[in-house]
Design a protein around this nucleic acid. Structure first.
Lengths: 115, 115
DNA sequence: CTGTTCGCTCACCTCAGGGTAACCACCCAC
DNA sequence: GTGGGTGGTTACCCTGAGGTGAGCGAACAG
């Protein structure tokens, strides 16, 4: 509905999708989201193992961005050795929900040739 | 469940989302998709105008990638001046459908502060 | 004859996101 | 004391997606 060619869109986005794309635009973001979706309350090291190939730096920075975007919640326990847990916020859960159909589409076309 | 930590995923993807992300990963892909969704059968120049800020080179390459991925259909009429029309394929339409919830999520959090 | 439209293509350059790797403070097991 | 585990941080480098600008070949307006 003409969301695209409406010049007065709020904050530079022409439709909701690129607002979402800004959040999940990182290379590993969706994988982190997915890992967190399957098993909430993961720790840093667990996440690193769950997302094979990611480096600590990138995992940390992505986690920070997701936290800043209100997608994940970071809880650090003041123990020793230091323990930090990451969870999805309500917004993050809804984001993952919204990602569901997209995942289904991708899986469908990966399995089926997509005729 | 456990799609993530399953090492034997088909072609390098751990879940359907990153398969989808490969398709819509370009900076302007979703905008093109969205423009095509709102009004099918757009021409190159129209698309360029509909997606403000994109350059010809990038539009052309993104269009080519989308075509290679079976998302858009390219029909070139052998007239003069040359005319080319782009349409969404059935797969593209379903992709846009799958993008719907994501767009809703983005719009919701753009408008609402996300409490 | 010049300029413009149309749908690109080519060569070049920039820049930010991501990769590499070392390091930190702390504690426990050996 | 040494090594390993915790959860990071910092510095540097590097690749590739994307931006810039020009041109092309035909027709048509002026």
């Amino acid at each position: 509905m003409a969301t695209l060619n409406r010049p007065g869109a709020s904050d530079g986005h022409v439709c909701g999708i690129d607002a979402a794309m800004e959040v999940i635009g990182g290379k590993w973001k969706v994988l982190i989201l997915w890992a967190l979706h399957e098993q909430p309350h993961r720790r840093f090291g667990e996440l690193r193992r769950l997302v094979p190939g990611i480096t600590e730096k990138v995992l940390a920075s992505h986690l920070r961005e997701l936290e800043a975007d209100g997608i994940v919640d970071r809880v650090s326990y003041d123990e020793v050795p230091p323990r930090v847990e990451y969870t999805l916020t309500k917004d993050g859960i809804r984001l993952n929900d919204a990602l569901g159909p997209l995942a289904a589409w991708g899986r469908e076309r990966a399995g089926d040739a997509g005729s």
